[in-house]
Design a binder for these strands. Structure first.
Lengths: 118, 118
DNA sequence: ACAATTGTTCAATGAATTTTGAACTAAAGG
DNA sequence: CCTTTAGTTCAAAATTCATTGAACAATTGT
């Protein structure tokens, strides 16, 4: 089974910018980019907001064409649509992710993980 | 006299993205970029929306740190804060402007101008 | 002084967005 | 079959956003 995604051509710039203009969704995208290639399921992002709200934000990202969601059993595997985004908007994703990395005020996925002592 | 602007450090990425995620404001930024260096007054943008609404959008751009507004007599001279944006978010503005240039669905300042015949 | 130009502010409205909890579906495991 | 796991859907509430018209302020030109 597969969920509705826009084609690469249907991805709209104002839409992508608006969708990325939300700290929670920016955190999701950053994390996806940091785990590029590895499909993640929704539960990875549960420290950002409630499950219901997460479902909403992930739907926004998918509908804007920023992420791809694959239904596998009872979970959704989420990936960044990097090739499509890079083709439609060259350099945009990279500059957004790099800028986000410098912003200490942004929420981060896994911010409360236990750190291994040196 | 001078209007309130955020410092370069106060410019926030999600804010900038959200503000650019609006077709009217994207058109304003594109036009400013195409006339880089030349300060423009508000009336240049009047084909995009009503005067009141334009005032609102220009305030959004200024408050987000995307533009600088200088009060000169009865008009406001508007410029892109390119250096600040480039320093804070390298590559972002350029990729947004380039992507916008490829999007025929976006509104454009001066779209109804009389074309000189060849 | 008067009128025109340039642009803002205000209050109102409608629309879209974000967030929540309760109820739900569907697959997986025992 | 029953329960857990994973995530969605729905309606409601709260917030924010975009747009409008009327009134206003300040400068400029006559």
């Amino acid at each position: 089974m597969t969920l509705p995604h826009p084609t690469a051509e249907q991805i709209s710039l104002p839409n992508v910018l608006a969708v990325l203009g939300d700290p929670t969704r920016l955190a999701i995208v950053r994390y996806l980019a940091s785990k590029e290639g590895v499909p993640l399921n929704c539960s990875q992002f549960l420290d950002l907001c409630s499950k219901t709200n997460l479902s909403y934000h992930l739907a926004k990202l998918r509908e804007a064409g920023v992420t791809r969601t694959e239904v596998v059993g009872t979970s959704r595997l989420i990936t960044l649509r990097r090739d499509d985004l890079d083709r439609r908007f060259p350099g945009l994703l990279d500059s957004v992710i790099a800028a986000a990395a410098d912003d200490a005020a942004l929420p981060v996925v896994g911010a409360h993980e236990i750190k291994i002592q040196a």
